[in-house]
Simulated scan of single mutants.
Amino acid sequence: MQTDGQPLPGVSYVMPVLNEVTEVRAAVASLLEQDYAGAFEVVLALGPSIDGTNELVAEMSAADPRIRAVENVVGSTPAGLNVAIRASTHPVVVRVDAHSVLPPDYTRIAVRVLQESGADNVGGIMRAEGRTPFEKAVALAYGSRVGLGGTPHHVGGQAGPAETAYLGVFRRDRLFAVGLFDEGIKRGQDWELNRRLRSTGGTVWFTPELVVTYRPRPSLKRLIRQFVATGLWRGELARRFPANNGLRYFVPPAMVVGLGLGLLAGIVGVVGALLGSGVAWAMTGFVVPAVYVLFVVVGGLAAARRSDNATRAWLLVVLPCIHIGWGVGFIVGFLTRTSELTTHTGR
């Protein structure tokens, strides 16, 4: 198979892996099953896993020479991506997440769009799919406006230039031209890299033709940690690059501030009423959290109207955890130096 009389470019799949023993086999299998006719390799950057991930990858690599493992001593996502990219050999780099499963036509479509658009990076839709009621609730939150806002890379949209892209299919030379991923940014490093690609005259391209299955975190604890960390780094990036901030990034922190002030005012009003002071009116502050609860219940039930009762119930728990976790993280990240904070706390 050729494009314009030229052989298809070789493709390098790069994947940072850390404690993903339950997901990595399916993620790698989806790469080996691609219907792309060009040459390819799979480069896995292995962090210091403690759950048997590295042993499993060693077995897969021994069984298939197209799978190579390189050591990611730092263990972070951007460090792993850079290690894998440097070890790669082909002109097209496909970023893959251990929680993602690519459809068989993903690479074929991505390379075609990369060539037709002339873009430096092409990405598509992250379609979250859950297997348990909890994971299904998280998937609904990802794909609904009441959850993560219904952005194009979650719900789809028109093909064209974009601010950033989910995962990404890159021209390898452009990655090196802009200095690869910033290893000082532990979350949101894809957004920051795409910012540099665009600032140096490149194009980031969204296409709804690309759809990737994403497996949500399997527990509430892991979900909260994910969104607090994501919020921390989004706040850090908002402070570092104020000219690139969209209004939607400030909605969750504004909501958290509003909830906090409303609850505080309401409590002051209750205490004032009990003491007979003149601040009982402050109890009206409870209107703010009441409105938020109503928003979550009405919006959540609407989003889960076709789901089972267990998924609906979980969604009413998941939504506040995402909103508040992300919002609190953003405020802390915006007001502090996240890189120093995460270093000191071991994140």
Results as ranks from 00 to 15, higher is better:
P91V: 09
V92A: 05
V94P: 02
R95L: 13
D97L: 09
D97T: 02
D97Q: 05
D97F: 08
H99F: 13
S100M: 03
S100L: 06
V101Q: 11
V101K: 11
V101P: 07
L102I: 04
L102C: 01
L102W: 14
P103T: 11
P104H: 04
P104G: 10
D105F: 15
Y106F: 11
Y106M: 02
Y106G: 00
Y106H: 01
T107M: 03
R108H: 10
R108G: 10
V111H: 01
V111A: 02
V111M: 06
R112V: 00
R112Y: 03
V113A: 01
V113M: 00
L114D: 01
L114R: 08
Q115T: 12
Q115R: 15
Q115W: 10
E116T: 10
E116Q: 14
A119G: 01
A119E: 02
D120Y: 09
N121K: 14
V122W: 07
V122L: 00
V122A: 02
G123H: 14
G123P: 05
G123Q: 11
G123L: 04
G123F: 03
G124N: 02
G124E: 01
G124Y: 04
G124S: 02
I125L: 01
I125G: 01
M126A: 14
M126E: 12
R127P: 01
A128R: 11
E129R: 15
E129W: 08
E129V: 15
E129G: 05
G130N: 08
R131I: 09
R131E: 14
T132S: 15
T132A: 13
T132R: 09
P133H: 13
P133F: 09
F134V: 09
F134W: 15
E135M: 12
E135A: 06
K136T: 06
K136M: 11
K136A: 12
A137F: 10
V138E: 00
A139T: 10
A139R: 08
L140V: 15
A141L: 04
A141V: 04
Y142P: 03
Y142E: 08
Y142L: 00
Y142I: 10
Y142F: 15
G143M: 14
S144F: 15
S144V: 12
S144Y: 12
R145H: 08
R145K: 08
V146T: 13
V146Q: 09
G147T: 06
L148W: 14
G149L: 06
G149R: 07
G149Y: 08
G149H: 05
G149T: 04
G150R: 06
T151Q: 15
T151P: 15
T151H: 14
T151F: 15
P152N: 00
P152C: 02
H153M: 15
